[in-house]
Nucleic acid binder design. Sequence first.
DNA 1: GTCATAATTAGATAGATTGCTAAGTATCTA
DNA 2: TAGATACTTAGCAATCTATCTAATTATGAC
Lengths: 98, 98
Amino acid sequence: MNTVTNDLVFKALADPTRRKILRILNGRELTAGQLTEQFHISAPSMSHHFNLLKQADLIFARRDGQQIYYSLNTTVFQDVATFMMDLFTVREVDGDTE
Amino acid sequence: MNTVTNDLVFKALADPTRRKILRILNGRELTAGQLTEQFHISAPSMSHHFNLLKQADLIFARRDGQQIYYSLNTTVFQDVATFMMDLFTVREVDGDTE
DNA sequence: GTCATAATTAGATAGATTGCTAAGTATCTA
DNA sequence: TAGATACTTAGCAATCTATCTAATTATGAC
């Protein structure tokens, strides 16, 4: 996970609506419309959130007919978990910061 | 970790400067001044970042004389790691979303 | 082709965020 | 108490973000 991607991921996770989208997508695939139903937000606003989540590589999108199905991309979550874990690891005694 | 705290934590993590502060604090305690030296940002701006990190419970602050020492509060990182892990866990078959 | 449906893109706006300088507070030294 | 140092708070400007409505694109049914 390079710095740019890192940044997009944390920016994506900063919004509660987007975190809820991720939780809802846990273990299943839903259409944009099915996801939108669960929020009190317009379809274009939801579409905007889907875009940011896609840019951050947190979700996949596939079209089937008129619908677009969204699902989690768990590989990037692993990267974020790693970032978090690194904050726990013991520093090198002579380790340089950045 | 309640929803409000959750929100403050993810907002705090959304900024690359604040993430770098956390990385630098990994395993040691530094003064506001020592931290500020490592950035090309004014002291007041850094102070603002310290504030957000404190509100999110991601760092501790203690004064010793003229200096204020900052250090990581690792317990909240654990909470975030848990949030991330939950996104991997298998949903209940009849589980309701939210 | 025409109409309906699902979703997106375009454009606007209110509010949040990040950065700055100036001013204030807390502490130490003399 | 006066001056210096470390840091924060106050107030402001530029930029970014989340949301909306209106318009557009893509697909399917007739």
